[in-house]
Deep mutational scan, measured.
Amino acid sequence: MAEQVALSRTQVCGILREELFQGDAFHQSDTHIFIIMGASGDLAKKKIYPTIWWLFRDGLLPENTFIVGYARSRLTVADIRKQSEPFFKATPEEKLKLEDFFARNSYVAGQYDDAASYQRLNSHMNALHLGSQANRLFYLALPPTVYEAVTKNIHESCMSQIGWNRIIVEKPFGRDLQSSDRLSNHISSLFREDQIYRIDHYLGKEMVQNLMVLRFANRIFGPIWNRDNIACVILTFKEPFGTEGRGGYFDEFGIIRDVMQNHLLQMLCLVAMEKPASTNSDDVRDEKVKVLKCISEVQANNVVLGQYVGNPDGEGEATKGYLDDPTVPRGSTTATFAAVVLYVENERWDGVPFILRCGKALNERKAEVRLQFHDVAGDIFHQQCKRNELVIRVQPNEAVYTKMMTKKPGMFFNPEESELDLTYGNRYKNVKLPDAYERLILDVFCGSQMHFVRSDELREAWRIFTPLLHQIELEKPKPIPYIYGSRGPTEADELMKRVGFQYEGTYKWVNP
């Protein structure tokens, strides 16, 4: 592979701008107003304001973009700056750019259920340069409990009458099928589907988006991507930290609602779906819905739930269990780990287990898709061969690698495990991989909904998990304890083995 010439960040961002501006969906010269509902909250200060700053800094926003914060707290732009700027990672050389960014910011205080507050917000936006005809993007960085009041008031008082209007809704989209349907029906009564952007930030990850290209742009994968060759698929999300004093919020939802029903299920769809007619948003989402419709409700015998306990040999936070978090209700049975087996009941995947695993306070930070292939028929190497695996590593250190057998150097035919490896950090030294939120917010500006969740996708996802969630809430089974920093409950490994996964433990990928 030829040595790549190092590029400056300015040059890299210039390439990104060229890609972005050559499309006809990006209205570079139009006025846009980006409204952050819930501007005083954690999500706004840690993710949304920093993301908008990065896009502005790199010249990736339309030229005439204004940012308006809205929340109940009586704040000023200076207050917003004070709480969000520490997350910007701005350099001293960017000081003038930073001043320009905050000059485009404003803030309006108001209630979430008060019509007069929204009329005041609308008047404020109209007073901005060309504000009355601007395109408006409303980001709901809010708890779902206020979605209905907020969307109703936005629709009645704050819509642009000339430009387009788009609304970005953060997960969780309800707690179960019934609450999700209620919320979807409410929002759909106010906005068209092409105006609604239900954001799952995992769909903005580079390697998640790469799944489609790997599958449908490489001839070698087509013939082997089926039940005849693939023994099982494992989708993993692991965090090495616990709730760390923020367990009160987590306890309301648990690990299945927080990660599995959305992030992991979306990745499953991209692995299992048929080739779409095109890369058009609805063509892709149509195929994802077909996959979900082929999955039956989760069966309790295919589920393992766990909850982390303190590690007596650990240090600091590792010595504390979930129930030691003062914000967690006493005696909570909320799971911090889950392993679930699903089956896609169609011709391509009949009988292939899709194993979804996620948890907190585990032994490493990792998100990946792992396809394990069947054993080689007619073994001539005296059971020395391990199964081939194709691994798409989402985070950290984005990579695609194939675990395969090669001859060990020497005189004899002794096979050993090795890999074919594409590590993004080595291959793409001159490429700026956008943060997931950067990519998705740019998608909203461009009107691309491919990486957002459609209402029928959402409904099918909740259909699969709601009976299990209701059973857990009714019966309150005690989750299996696992030690902070471990791989999780051993019962999860036993479940995976029972459905056909072979864990060798003899080879570990190392970032080159």
Rank of each mutant, 00 (worst) to 15 (best):
C158G: 10
S106F: 13
V108R: 06
N165A: 11
I220N: 00
I162S: 11
I168F: 05
S184C: 11
P172G: 04
F102I: 06
I80H: 06
R227S: 12
K95F: 09
V208G: 01
D228H: 10
Q161C: 13
K47C: 00
L60P: 01
S157H: 12
L43K: 01
R166V: 01
P223G: 07
L96I: 13
S117W: 10
H124L: 08
S179K: 02
G38K: 03
I224Q: 10
L211K: 04
N64A: 07
V12G: 07
T91M: 13
E193P: 00
G254D: 02
L140Q: 06
K205F: 02
R81L: 14
N105Q: 10
V150N: 10
F21Y: 14
T91W: 08
A103E: 15
S184R: 02
G248F: 05
P62D: 05
H129F: 12
E244W: 13
F66E: 09
Q28K: 14
V169Y: 08
L177E: 07
V108M: 12
N122I: 09
S84L: 10
G204P: 01
E93C: 12
V12L: 15
L55H: 08
A149H: 13
F173Q: 05
T51E: 09
G163D: 07
E85V: 12
K47S: 01
S179Q: 07
Y70N: 07
E239H: 04
L190T: 10
S73W: 02
Q28S: 13
I36L: 05
D113H: 13
L43E: 01
D79K: 08
Q119Y: 14
I48S: 02
P62I: 02
K171Y: 04
S189W: 07
P143L: 02
P223M: 07
I36T: 03
I255K: 04
Q111F: 11
S179R: 03
C232A: 14
D228K: 08
E93M: 10
D194W: 09
R120M: 12
W225H: 05
H155C: 11
S8K: 15
G110M: 02
H186L: 06
L20H: 15
P144I: 03
Q83W: 10
I162M: 13
R9W: 15
V77W: 10
N218Y: 01
T243S: 12
N210Q: 06
R17D: 15
Y118T: 08
S40R: 00
V150I: 09
Q119I: 13
F221H: 08
I199V: 06
I15S: 07
M125D: 00
F253V: 05
E156D: 14
S84W: 07
T236E: 13
V108L: 08
R72Q: 01
V77N: 13
F88P: 00
D181I: 05
S184I: 12
D194L: 06
V146L: 10
Q161N: 14
P92Y: 11
L214S: 06
Y118I: 08
D30G: 10
A116F: 10
S123K: 15
L16C: 15
L183S: 01
P50Y: 00
L55P: 02
E63K: 14
E63L: 15
Q111T: 15
N218C: 01
G131L: 08
I196M: 09
T10Q: 15
F173W: 09
P143E: 04
A231S: 13
V146M: 10
Y49G: 02
I15L: 09
E193Q: 01
Y112I: 02
N185L: 11
A39I: 00
L61F: 08
H186S: 14
A116N: 13
Q133Y: 12
T65N: 01
D194I: 07
A217D: 03
R192N: 14
Y202K: 04
K46R: 13
P50R: 11
K47E: 01
P50D: 01
N226A: 07
D228E: 14
P223S: 09
K45Y: 06
Q22R: 12
R57E: 03
R192H: 11
Q28Y: 13
V146T: 11
Q161V: 12
T65Q: 03
H155K: 14
I36H: 01
L211F: 13
Q209H: 05
G38Q: 00
V213N: 05
D114P: 07
A71D: 01
P50L: 05
A115R: 15
G174Y: 00
S180A: 06
L60V: 10
L43N: 00
N226S: 12
F138S: 00
R17T: 15
P143V: 13
K238T: 01
D200T: 05
E99N: 14
I80R: 01
S180I: 02
E63S: 10
L75T: 09
S188C: 08
T151M: 12
L130K: 15
R104S: 06
V233Q: 03
K89F: 12
F34N: 00
N64R: 13
N229C: 08
Q119P: 12
L43G: 03
L183I: 13
I48E: 02
V12W: 14
D42V: 00
V108A: 07
T65A: 09
N135Q: 14
G245S: 09
R227P: 06
E252T: 13
F221M: 14
I52W: 01
L177I: 10
Y107K: 01
C232K: 02
Q111D: 12
S73G: 06
C232W: 01
E85N: 06
P86L: 10
E99V: 08
L128P: 09
P143F: 02
F237G: 06
L60I: 10
Y197M: 00
E19N: 15
V108K: 07
H124A: 13
R198C: 02
D176I: 04
G247T: 06
P144G: 02
N64Q: 12
D114N: 12
E63Q: 13
A103W: 09
I36R: 03
W225M: 05
F138N: 02
K47H: 08
A127H: 14
F237E: 01
M159T: 13
S132A: 14
A231Y: 05
L203M: 03
F216G: 00
L235K: 02
I162W: 14
Q111G: 10
E19A: 15
T76L: 08
A90H: 06
P223T: 10
E148Y: 08
L211I: 13
D251Y: 02
R57T: 02
Q22P: 15
E63F: 11
L203G: 03
F26R: 12
F21K: 15
I52L: 09
K171L: 03
T51Y: 06
L7T: 15
V213Q: 09
F56L: 04
Y249I: 03
Y139M: 08
I162G: 11
V77R: 09
D251I: 01
V150Q: 01
K89R: 15
M159N: 13
A115V: 15
V12F: 15
L142H: 03
R136C: 10
S123R: 15
L96W: 11
A149Q: 13
D114G: 14
I167Y: 09
L20T: 15
Q195W: 06
D79S: 12
V169H: 03
Q83E: 12
L75E: 07
D181E: 13
Q22F: 13
R198F: 05
L235D: 00
M207H: 03
L98D: 00
R192C: 10
P143N: 08
I167K: 00
D100C: 10
R227H: 10
D24V: 11
G174D: 00
Y49M: 10
D42W: 01
R227T: 09
V213L: 13
N126P: 05
H155Q: 11
K45S: 10
I52M: 09
Q83D: 12
G245D: 07
E19W: 07
A134S: 14
L128Q: 12
L96G: 11
S40W: 04
E193N: 01
E156F: 11
Y112T: 05
I230E: 03
F237H: 08
V233K: 02
A103V: 14
F250S: 05
Y118S: 08
Q11M: 10
V169T: 06
F173C: 06
E170N: 03
G248D: 00
